[in-house]
Design a protein around this nucleic acid. Structure first.
Ligand SMILES: [Mn+2]
Ligand SMILES: [Mn+2]
Ligand SMILES: [Zn+2]
Ligand SMILES: [Zn+2]
Lengths: 161, 161
DNA sequence: TTATTATTGAAAATCATTTTCATTATTGAA
DNA sequence: TTCAATAATGAAAATGATTTTCAATAATAA
C-alpha cells in the first residue's frame, strides 16, 4: 500500500486543514486518503455519493479503495463533519456539514425524477421561529431529545418537468 | 398458487374497500395479496417495513411471497396510497398516505438510535403558513415544481436517551 | 365457461454497503 | 532518526434489502 504523499497538493497551508485538529483530538490519524476525501468534499457544491467521491479522488490518487471512502464518510458523519442525505435513489449522498468551515444551515429540494439535490437557504429566518417553537413543544410532549431537523421539498426540477 | 379466498375476513363490507375503485380505474386487478397488505396497513399505526408487513400477513395468509409485498408497496406508492419513509436504517418503512381513508397530514420524529418513528400533527397550522410561503418562493426561484414536503426531527426517543 | 393476460411466488440476480484479514502507514517514544 | 505499537488501508468476500426472471395461476371480460 503506497501512499505517495510527495506530490499531492493540499489547501490550508501544507497539510494543516481545519479538520486536522479535530482528528488529533479524537485520536484519529491524519492520512492521505482522508485528506483527499475531505479535499473533494471541500471543493464541490454538489451532493456526491460514495462512488462519485471515489472516482474523483481516484484521478489524482488511484491507490484509494472504495472501502476506505465508505469508512471515512462514516467516520466524518459520526464526527459531525459531513451530513448524509438520502435522495430516495438507493444510495447515500454526502456534503460538508454547516459550521465555520462548512456550509451554512440550509435545506433541500429533491427532484423525484433525476435525483438532483438543490440547496436553499431562503426563508431560514421564518423557519427558525417555527422550528424552535415546534421543537420545544415536541420534545416535551413526546419526551424526545431533538438533535436536528430536516425540511425537504420533493418535486420536479426545471429539466425534468 | 392457492389463493384460498374463502375464510379471509375483510373490513369495508365484504371485499369492497375504499381503494378497490381506484384499482379498477387504473386497470389493476383486485387480489387477495393486495387486500391483505392493505388490510395490515389500515389496521396499524406503526411504520412497517416490507418484511414486517410480510410477516403480519403471513399469519393469516401463509401463501404470500415477500416479492409480492415489495411489488404491491411499489404500486401503492406510485398510486399515492402509501408513503415510503426512510428512517436511516437501510430499510424502507410504509404507512397509509393522508386522505379521506388514510391518516391526516403529519410529520415525523425519528429516533437516531432505535429507529422508532413517531407521528406528530402539532403546529400544523403554523407550518402551513411557512410551507406555502416557502413553496411559492422556491418554485419560482429554482423553477422547481414542488409536489410535497417533509419535515423530520431526528433525535433520541424517551427509551433511548 | 373460456380466453386473455395481469399477478404471483420461488429462485436467482443486483447493488450499495459492510466485514474480514493480511499488509502498510502513522505516531509517539526512545 | 529509529522503532514498536497499532490505527488505517485495500482487496476480496459477505451481507442484506430490493429487483428481476420466468413458469404457473388467478382475475376479468366476453
Ligand atoms: Mn445541501
Ligand atoms: Mn407517519
Ligand atoms: Zn430532475
Ligand atoms: Zn429510540
Amino acid at each position: 500500500m503506497r501512499y505517495g504523499r510527495r506530490h499531492l497538493r493540499r489547501g490550508y497551508g501544507m497539510g494543516h486543514g481545519w479538520w486536522q485538529g479535530r482528528f488529533r483530538g479524537c485520536g484519529y490519524r491524519i492520512t492521505v486518503p482522508r485528506e483527499e476525501i475531505l479535499s473533494v468534499l471541500s471543493n464541490t457544491s454538489e451532493h456526491l455519493s460514495a462512488e462519485e467521491i471515489y472516482m474523483k479522488v481516484h484521478k489524482t490518487y488511484p491507490g484509494l479503495g472504495l472501502t476506505t471512502v465508505y469508512r471515512t464518510l462514516e467516520l466524518l458523519e459520526e464526527m459531525g463533519i459531513v451530513i448524509r442525505i438520502d435522495a430516495g435513489d438507493g444510495r447515500a449522498r454526502y456534503e460538508l456539514a454547516e459550521g465555520p468551515k462548512g456550509r451554512r444551515h440550509h435545506h433541500h429540494l429533491i427532484c423525484a425524477k433525476c435525483g438532483k439535490v438543490i440547496d436553499y437557504t431562503d426563508f431560514i429566518e421564518d423557519e427558525k421561529e417555527l422550528i424552535s417553537k415546534t421543537e420545544s413543544g415536541l420534545s416535551k410532549k413526546y419526551k424526545f431529545k431533538i438533535l436536528n431537523h430536516e425540511i425537504t421539498f420533493y418535486g420536479l426540477c426545471d429539466a425534468c418537468k
